[in-house]
Design a protein around this nucleic acid. Structure first.
Lengths: 339, 339
DNA sequence: GTTAGCACTCGCTCGCAATGAGTGCTAACA
DNA sequence: TGTTAGCACTCATTGCGAGCGAGTGCTAAC
């Protein structure tokens, strides 16, 4: 038995009805809304077939049908119903670009901007930074025994860390040391710089005596650069969906958002275009009834991060995919400095 | 009718029982637990008095009593039952100081550290920074037409912003400009610096031609420094309290957390020591059944921020006040650089 | 002032019947 | 062979009333 055109049409009508209503769809209403001009009995026959094929589920025998994950999958891959019109997109684009301008605001604002505009929970993955190449290093005096170390990389991305320094060093001495460090480390990756710092700390040569707390610094760099970082925004949006009216369910969802490492591995799977993971495809138990829409963004050349929204599988996919696609473009545009 | 010692003792027992059980407290259980050695009938008489005086509320006539906000207020101000012992405090202190080291981590980590350790929702108010005095300014080349402006203030607090600059300027030119700016602006407040930048942008004198996007920068500084900023952490903790098992209530709570300006005015009321606001005292409708415990922290000299936790009025006040007091000390310690 | 006793209140739970939306099946129809 | 009307059947949901029990207020005795 295959899914012919009529079955597809019925399935589409069911999915779209369910997305709006969140109640099982019955054959009678369907015969009126799907526009095929056939009676409810015919629809019933088709629905029985679709149920047998695993596209539909009935909560209980005398209820209507609910689309399964398989149905959403078919819906997303085979059908491309109305997304957002130009006006809507443009309005959202403006709202978004007003809030996210540079890499810092992506990290601090990105997730909440996306969640505000989509009304879903948003995730932002910052790209792993240990492969970035160092362009220059700078030491800026902050207090008598503290300096700010600023690392500029080839993507314009900046890592800054406050470190302890010998109190004998004044501003110009620190500037000179910065120049020296730049000279020595230019072109190396952040990972190599880190290894070098570990080396200094261990060997305690001239530079190690000048800079205190180098091991600390290297460790902190490792933490900040080696693992991707993920930001969550708008977690409370989930409370607006009746699927999560039960506190236990909502709690499980929120807890899943706390487990950063699983979110990171979820977002690492982001590929070039817009990605959609439905239900179990997410690989996260608490997201069994959720869908995740992912999109990549580029920082500088080649280093990619990812954004995502998470919400009930009952989601206006086309609209949200349009949204995410737009965010992806906007971010990449905002973050690519001209060289 | 006044609150004599026995009434106080009974009230205390009710509050503490209710904090643990979250169920109305009856006279029978109370006669056993309060340790007065009187019968339930006697307790009932006293409870009737306390109800009349507004310290107790009965949800319905055949239920036990529930402490009112007035009761919690009396409990907090007059009674000081067991807080945390030294060991507990010490363990929490370690966990906290491991996560919050400098002003940046207070902003990014503070709220979630506090919420993790208390299991309540945490708020962190960063101090207004426009009164800080500038110590030095630095320009660091990031890309051909971008530089990082770092402002070091007398509290060691750093404001950094990415700005557009003329592409004709190389690293050493930017360094020189930084020195010049430092020379000119040292000792001024951030507010004065901002005004000066606005002036440059308007008059378009020599320096304005050198630096592009000055007005942008000034506006951004204004936004970042003029208004206090507030961070929220662990909002989902509220879902663990049965008082918020209803999604509508939880949603109202979460929405209140989105209204930053009312949170700011809540936290601005923080005074020198640990503050406790109970129910309507918070002035926020959604926090009518919540209590807020606030504590100040100092950054450098004199500039104060505030931390707070928000949770159901049924809260182990003494323990939480101990906690907040410790956080306050730790933060102030971690953020006061030696001069 | 304290306590035992007792009638009373009222939220909560459980079982039961009525309701109604929706199904599957069958037989007739085009 | 596909479509449709008709009909018996299922089952979640709702409303209702009885029974339960925790807890109270009051009264009378200590």
């Amino acid at each position: 038995m295959d899914v012919d055109a009529r079955k597809l049409r019925i399935l589409q009508a069911i999915v779209e009805d369910y997305i709006l209503s969140n109640t099982p769809v019955g054959s009678r209403t369907l015969s009126k809304t799907c526009g095929l001009g056939v009676s409810s009995a015919t629809i019933r026959n088709e629905m029985a077939d679709l149920t047998e094929m695993g596209y539909l589920v009935q909560p209980h025998v005398s209820a209507g049908r609910v689309p399964s994950a398989k149905a959403y999958r078919l819906y997303v891959t085979q059908l491309r119903p109305r997304g957002m019109d130009e006006q809507e997109i443009e309005r959202a684009r403006k709202a978004f670009s007003g809030r996210v301008r540079d890499i810092e605001s992506v990290i601090s604002q990105g997730a909440s901007a996306i969640s505000d505009l989509t009304h879903y929970t948003a995730l932002v993955l910052t790209p792993r930074q240990s492969d970035l190449k160092v362009r220059s290093l700078h030491l800026i005096p902050v207090a008598s025994d503290r300096a700010l170390l600023v690392i500029v990389t080839d993507s314009g991305v900046i890592r800054d860390t406050s470190i302890r320094v010998s109190s004998r060093l004044d501003a110009s001495a620190l500037y000179t040391i910065g120049q020296m460090l730049t000279h020595r480390m230019q072109g190396l990756t952040l990972r190599q710089v880190r290894e070098m710092l570990y080396g200094y700390a261990a060997n305690s040569d001239a530079d190690a005596r000048v800079l205190g707390g180098i091991a600390d610094l290297a460790a902190q760099m490792e933490k900040q650069t080696e693992s991707d970082r993920v930001m969550v925004g708008g977690a409370h949006n989930i409370l607006y969906y009746p699927e999560y009216a039960d506190v236990t369910t909502a709690r499980a969802f929120m807890n899943a958002l706390e487990d950063k490492s699983s979110l990171i591995s979820l977002l690492r799977r982001t590929e070039n275009g817009i990605g959609v993971m439905i239900g179990a495809e997410t690989g996260i138990e608490a997201f069994r009834d959720c869908s995740v829409i992912t999109a990549p963004y580029r920082v500088g050349r080649g280093h990619t991060g990812a954004i995502a929204i998470v919400g009930p599988t009952r989601m206006p996919y086309a609209r949200m995919m349009d949204m995410m696609s737009m965010f992806s473009q906007e971010l990449t545009g905002a973050l690519s400095y001209k060289e």
